[in-house]
């Protein structure tokens, strides 16, 4: 039986890949002579083959879902970040519009004071801007948050924001109005917030696409 304990040790070394060439020779010689050890070695090797054919098991179908359900909740921040990463175009568009609209509304909220483009020979009375009779205003005229009376001539475009074009003489009929004041350009009146935004956008688009 002494041969067994020693040889079996060598067999296990062999199975673990730890055996030296010298020991392997020793094992080989012994196995040639000893039938009991031969049988033992055969059984060991066979056992390992058998172990590997043990029944296999697969996780239940809903396993992953169950694990995920039981995890502590993740940080909200990461959830948003992931969404942004998955939709880069939407994110870019959203950021663009947010910046743009806040910008526009901001200026809208701030601009409650009367603003008139810098031109000489304009008369300002309270919140009313008057182009006096017989005068010619050169260049584009912009009036914000005020009314405009044109008795003279404007040599350019007129933009009126949040205000009204007033006919100076209420008794005059409409046909006469044009003859009282004259605009040698486009007339544009912007009254509503929405129109104001459009106006801004138009200006923005013009700036973007002009190559001047």
């Amino acid at each position: 039986m002494k041969c067994n304990a020693e040889t079996i040790g060598l067999m296990h070394k062999y199975l673990d890949g730890d055996i030296t060439t010298e020991e392997e020779q020793q094992l080989k010689y012994h196995l040639e002579d000893c039938e009991a050890c031969q049988e033992h070695f055969r059984e060991l090797k066979r056992t390992l083959t058998l172990i590997q054919s043990a029944e296999r098991f697969e996780a239940p179908a809903n396993f992953t879902a169950n694990v995920m359900k039981n995890l502590p909740t993740e940080k909200k921040q990461v959830k948003y970040l992931r969404w942004f990463k998955m939709h880069p175009m939407l994110t870019a568009a959203a950021v663009f519009f947010i910046l743009m609209f806040t910008g526009v509304f901001f200026t809208w909220e701030q601009d409650n004071q009367l603003v008139v483009s810098k031109q000489e020979n304009l008369i300002i009375e309270g919140d009313t801007v008057i182009v006096p009779e017989g005068e010619v205003v050169e260049g584009d005229l912009l009036v914000k948050n005020g009314n405009l009376i044109i008795n003279g001539t404007v040599d350019g475009n007129v933009t009126l924001v949040n205000g009204k074009l007033i006919d100076d003489d209420p008794l005059d009929n409409r046909g006469l109005m044009a003859s009282v004041g004259e605009i040698n350009g486009e007339f544009e009146s912007v009254d509503q917030t929405f129109d104001w935004i459009l106006y801004k956008l138009k200006g923005f688009a013009k700036k973007v696409f002009s190559f001047e």
Partner: peptide, 20 residues
């Protein structure tokens, strides 16, 4: 970094091994 959906991939990759 706190991304749970990445963990879901890990779970489904290793679930059979660990369960077995």
């Amino acid at each position: 970094k706190g991304d749970q959906s990445a963990y879901e991939d890990l779970v489904s990759f290793y679930q059979n091994k660990i369960y077995q």
